[in-house]
């Protein structure tokens, strides 16, 4: 039975629950927008990375270079699109 619950994945799950709890602080505590959004950015991206590495085994084959480049490129383009649009529509309007 024990071999079905590898320590790495159990820890990963526990850690992602903790991160969720930390993110929930922004709901239960009264804090500034900047502090709140910082907490959310940090917890969300750590969680995403956790899933990618612990659960999705992104780096287990010889293709890991290509797979990671693909994901990073996607994230780069995604962030540029989001922040570029915000620049146009909200911040510099």
């Amino acid at each position: 039975m024990k071999e079905l619950f590898p320590i790495k994945q159990v820890m990963g799950f526990a850690f992602s629950l903790i991160l969720t709890a930390v993110a929930l602080l922004v709901y239960f505590l009264d804090m500034s927008f900047t502090a709140g959004i910082t907490i959310l950015l940090v917890t969300a991206f750590i969680q995403a990375g956790l899933q990618l590495v612990v659960f999705m085994h992104a780096g287990e084959t010889e293709d890991k270079g290509a797979i990671y480049s693909n994901v990073y490129f996607g994230i780069l383009v995604a962030l540029v699109t989001i922040f570029g649009t915000l620049l146009i529509f909200v911040w510099d309007m």
Binding site: T20, A23, V26, Y27, F33, G36, I37, L40, T43, A44
Partner: peptide, 10 residues
Amino acid sequence: FSFIYLKGMM
């Protein structure tokens, strides 16, 4: 969860 719900309820 983070950027729609929590941000919206912050």
